[in-house]
Design a protein around this nucleic acid. Sequence first.
DNA 1: ACTCATTTATAACAGGGTTATGAGAGACTG
DNA 2: CAGTCTCTCATAACCCTGTTATAAATGAGT
Lengths: 231, 231
Amino acid sequence: MSTGEDKDDVRGRLVEAAIRLLADNGPEALQARKVAAEIGASTMAVYTHFGGMGELIDAVGREGFRRLSASLDAVPSSDDTVADLFTMALAYRRTALENPHLYAVTFGLSAPGGRRVTLSDITDPHGKTGEGLTAFGFLLDATTRAIDAGRFRPADPLVAAAQLWSAVHGYVTLEISGHFGETGVELILRPLNATIALGLGDTIEKTTRSLQRSTHTWQQAGGNIHPRSGD
Amino acid sequence: MSTGEDKDDVRGRLVEAAIRLLADNGPEALQARKVAAEIGASTMAVYTHFGGMGELIDAVGREGFRRLSASLDAVPSSDDTVADLFTMALAYRRTALENPHLYAVTFGLSAPGGRRVTLSDITDPHGKTGEGLTAFGFLLDATTRAIDAGRFRPADPLVAAAQLWSAVHGYVTLEISGHFGETGVELILRPLNATIALGLGDTIEKTTRSLQRSTHTWQQAGGNIHPRSGD
DNA sequence: ACTCATTTATAACAGGGTTATGAGAGACTG
DNA sequence: CAGTCTCTCATAACCCTGTTATAAATGAGT
């Protein structure tokens, strides 16, 4: 209570407003005057609660990561570890496409001021500082289980997880850029998932069944596994 | 000659200057005044030869794509189609990391004004309009050859190429963002290449040999296969 | 030589981030 | 309870950057 966390929570409201504006009006809406006006305050609010637009954008990026983490966390662990990975890819992709501009900011590739969220701690399992690790951690856990279950060849789970991360992240950014059209998930992402599972040592039969199970799980959850629905 | 292509070529010099500034000083150097001053002109040059900063940035992005295409084109086709694909990934990655900011602009993820180079024609083999297609075309050719040679399972080469593109693009953006540290290529990219080749139907033995051949080819060329050395 | 189109330099305008300043609201202190 | 201190915030200005208006300059064509 006395930590000054909530109070009027102008800080949190600013981040929320920024994300909303980002979703509705794109990156050019990420302006001090507009964000401040969105919560009925003056631009000074940005400078008293953040150092400036840069730090606000950083906070937006961290919130984006938090949502990706929550999205992956919401995927339940089953006996079929590979199906879990497939479902995580779908959840990750869906969260990213719910607010593509937020995703761009999260990965520091679109910040108007050239700001960039540092995520170097992601690949360092010991420096568990930011929200980044939690997202990657869920992926790492799943790949570790897949290896332990004998689905994937014995290997460094970190390397396997990094490959999966690269592939899904790459697919998502390309889909956001407009490639792959409407049928990208069926045409590219699912085959990509299968390709990587096979390449990491799974058999065609098991991969095929995991693909079906993942589809079933996904549709069962209304294709909407992650918790916060936004709007 | 009479097309008005060369003349003083202010247009080309502006793009060159923008790319140079981008490499040296990052995205915030991509400003009308700075770019114009770099070639000793006033800001009006940007507006007479382009519509504004947006179109200049578009041109910069297209030049970035042209360099990626040239990089892939410089990889010679050998009997070992999978090794060719591995080498293309290394060439692509190297070109991207030569000017990471240019790569970001090329994929429309970093343009200060929120500009975005449209690349939808990349995945459409019939709408061969922009420079995008040529880059993807080289990749598509190589995957087609790999399928024809029996290294990959019979499949739509477009789907296979899109998967490879996703994976390498994702890896590159993550490496540029600072993950994977210094050893990313050995630790992540090569295993990722191998994983995808295996997943697309290649055998472990052949993939391993292609990996070695690619390494040999790459080092043979001084790890510098692409032509334009820049500086 | 004259005219017209194109290009360019100068200067101003518009919209952003940022900062200076003073007023207001609570909390602590005597 | 008065005073003071701190934190927050609204207003207004400042600086930088994209853009535009305007006129000079250059060169081609007649």
